[in-house]
Amino acid sequence: MALLQKGWLKYILMLLVFVVGQVLVMTGILNDYLFATLTTLCINIILAVSLNLITGFTGQFSLGHAGFMSIGAYVCALITMRISTIPGFLLGVFAGACAAALVGFIVGLPTLRLRGDYLAIATLGMAEIIRIVFLNLEITNGAAGLNGVPQFVTWPWLFLFTAGTIHLISNFIHSAHGRACITLREDEIAAESIGIDATRYKVTAFVMGAFFAGIAGSLYASYFYFLRPTLFGFSRSIDILVIVVLGGIGSLSGSVIAAILLALISTYLQSFPELRMVFYAVALVVIMILRPQGLMGSKELSFDLLRNLGRSRKRRSS
């Protein structure tokens, strides 16, 4: 019974977040500027959570997440510019995600044999290739990029895709397949010795991560209405990685919290434009010194964790 109640509580919380967001949007408290920040935040959450699946849970160090995002963005933009309807938008998101997943599969199959820094370099190269391809294709309008992508992203869509991504990836991680992925991070040889097919699960995680990065890219295109290849460079991949590491390698709630925290920091620092990046960098350094394992470590934010925390506090004070 307790488990059931906990499960319900999660859905009630999600509903609450949605309703609060909806009310803020409808009353106009969330103005255009704040809504743009919220959109960036949600996109970053999707990116970080999906990268965490690859890097945090499966242990495959990838520096190419922006590449997958750009595929989703361009595919979705090209589709919605031709079919400017809600079904067209959904088709665009789906096609964008699938295209990213397909590229993830093609790239992942040969490169996931590499380990650690070698894989990082290979994925970095992949993202660069994708960027150069978009820079030179006629259909993506080269360096000038695509302008006037129809804007479909509203709070309900944003919420649906973000919550959906977290929910699906969280379910995957807690499934038998997800645990197989985690064993690869823990010890690949041991994983193989108990009969886990390492390549298969690495590719699975990589393709899933790419799929959701494609969704994030699609949402980006459908909100910010213009795309340029330079938007998806190396620094964006790093930004995503920073969120993952800051939140904690292997903690989904950590990724969400870190994304929110970084969004708050950078929004607050808007008022000091000349010092903004300095403060931002200092904040990162300080957090990493104080919590080298990331904000959440590999733990998830759960009611059990809060209860245990409360208990140990009490024990210490008594």
């Binding site: 038998a176 645990r179 197989a180 985690i182 064993t183 823990e186 010890d187 040889i189 041991a190 994983a191 010795s193 108990i194 009969g195 886990i196 292997g250 590999s298």
Partner: peptide, 19 residues
């Protein structure tokens, strides 16, 4: 040995029966 260090003893054993 190569146990899965960040997993519980029970999880390690359960994973032995993965297939």
């Amino acid at each position: 040995r190569r146990v899965f260090p960040m997993m519980s003893v029970l999880e390690n054993l359960e994973l032995g029966a993965f297939l």
